[in-house]
């Protein structure tokens, strides 16, 4: 898995590439909590390059969303791919997280 964090105004976009499982998820948890600790609560998870996630990845995203909301921000998804969408649908995630076709529109949604 590879992570790439960029700033778009006061929104932080964390691009996640590769596979998210119990081995790799802690790294994403670190990246997201670093942003939250620095007071960046408007987050976008750009999942365009994410091919796969297990529940370990979902847990990290859910915890980050929870914390971002408690700080007045949010975690929004961008570019969710087929297999990842299947997992999100199984969990009921899509009903509580806002999802956008790409990172730009996810960033724009915070305006």
């Amino acid at each position: 898995m590879e992570l790439n964090t960029t700033a778009k105004g006061d929104v932080r976009v964390v691009a996640v590439n590769g596979n998210l499982d119990a081995l790799t998820a802690p790294e994403l948890a670190d990246a997201l909590s670093t942003q939250l600790r620095q007071g960046n609560a408007k987050l976008v998870a750009d999942l365009t390059g994410l091919e796969y996630t297990s529940s370990a990845g979902l847990r990290v995203l859910l915890n980050a969303a929870k914390e971002a909301r408690s700080k007045g921000g949010d975690l929004r998804f961008a570019g969710v791919q087929t297999n990842v969408k299947k997992v999100l649908d199984l969990s009921g995630f899509m009903s509580i997280i806002k999802s956008f076709p790409d990172a730009d529109s996810a960033v724009a949604s915070y305006a």
């Binding site: 297990s54 529940s55 979902l58 847990r59 859910l62 969303a65 929870k66 997992v87 199984l90 969990s91 009921g92 995630f93 009903s95 509580i96």
Partner: peptide, 24 residues
């Protein structure tokens, strides 16, 4: 069965791991 609303609102529930196995 786990549900995201419960997880989001800090209600105790088990994880999704086994739930996914049963679903798939």
């Amino acid at each position: 069965a786990p549900d995201v609303d419960a997880l989001l609102n800090d209600r105790p529930t088990t994880g999704f791991g086994l739930y996914f196995i049963y679903q798939t």
